[in-house]
């Protein structure tokens, strides 16, 4: 069963300079009980993708084409009221910036009780559940801290509270946009472990966005690599990390300081810039920066299979070059 199935999704922003094509023909799916990671350069459209899935888009954003199916229903065609009913219950979110999740003028306890509005339990029970959930994500003195306001917690604590709040609803899909960037490494691995346990217990799927390749490698079953608004590679974490098929993925892996054993003050980067999404170049979207560019690359490559279940959009694959 596929929990989330996105096909041919294109999203644009209206700007004074013209249409900014933030997502183009994006397809990906999140199977039941699986954790799918999305990686890609900043500005590649990851947050845009999420905002389109949950339909909380910027006022100047427009879906040009595509479908987003969640447990079989097309979210893009759903009446707003139904969509509102899904958000925070069947699909819950953890954002990059935890302040976005919290209401600054309500105590954390109040907010955590409010999330449980559909439950018939007593307020005391709900508070107890809230405290348990906070303890589960490693907030000390959970019971007492329910009386505090979001600003009284450190950045990392706010993020853990956001995760606790997102999981309270026992969603079938959890969407997490960079949820561990504010955490130290011990907490990060702890949260990853908890996320895995909770995912298993709740039986939900997770769409997990992170720049941290190590975290993706450790947490996810599958990974989708995005570049400048397109999916360029997708497959199991093992295939993609061990046998990257797209030159962009290879460059990304080479840039990870975790891969560089010798201490250096000059870290590798990918020379060049992401193309201007208002006036897109023709052909392969990565061509400008690709060390393996060749004549065929003036044509836009389609996703093709590098190995079973492992696909990438690069002409080298069809040409049978080694991945």
């Amino acid at each position: 069963m596929t929990v989330l199935d996105i096909q041919g999704l294109s999203v644009s922003y209206g700007t004074p300079r013209g249409e900014l094509r933030a997502l183009r023909d994006v397809s990906l799916s999140v199977p039941e009980r699986k954790i799918v990671g999305i990686v890609g350069e900043s500005g590649c459209g990851k947050s845009t993708l999420i905002s389109a899935i949950i339909r909380l888009m910027a006022p100047n954003a427009r879906v040009r084409s595509g479908t987003v199916r969640f447990n079989g229903q097309d979210l893009l065609a759903l009446p707003e009221a139904r969509m509102r009913g899904l958000r925070g219950t069947e699909i819950s979110m953890v954002f990059q910036d935890p302040m976005q999740t919290h209401n600054p003028v309500l105590t954390v306890g109040r907010q955590m009780i409010d999330i449980q509005y559909r439950d018939k339990r007593s307020k005391a029970d709900k508070l107890k559940r809230a405290a348990e959930m906070l303890a589960l994500v490693g907030i000390p003195d959970a019971r007492a801290r329910l009386n505090q306001y979001p600003f009284e917690f450190s950045g990392g604590m706010r993020q853990r509270i956001a995760i606790a709040m997102a999981l309270m609803a026992r969603p079938s899909l959890l969407i997490a946009d960079e949820p561990t960037t504010a955490l130290d490494a011990t907490l990060e691995v702890q949260i990853i472990k908890r996320l895995r346990e909770l995912q298993d217990e709740i039986g939900c799927s997770i769409l997990f966005i992170s720049h941290h390749l190590g975290v993706i490698a450790e947490l996810c079953d599958e990974v989708v690599v995005m570049y400048a608004g397109e999916v360029v590679e997708a497959g199991s974490v093992r295939d993609v990390f061990h046998h990257p098929a797209h030159p962009y993925t290879r460059a990304l892996l080479e840039c990870d300081p975790g891969h560089i054993k010798e201490k250096t003050r000059n870290l590798p980067t990918i020379p060049g810039n992401i193309p201007d999404l208002v006036s897109l170049p023709g052909g392969c979207i990565f061509a400008d920066r690709c060390p393996q560019r060749h004549d065929a690359c003036t044509e836009h490559p389609v996703m093709s299979e590098a190995s079973a279940g492992h696909r990438a959009a690069c002409h080298l694959i069809k040409a049978g070059a080694p991945a």
Binding site: G40, E41, S42, E178, H211, L213, L252, P257, L267, T269
Partner: peptide, 8 residues
Amino acid sequence: GLDVSIQG
């Protein structure tokens, strides 16, 4: 929140 290339 920065990807590895831009972080670099």
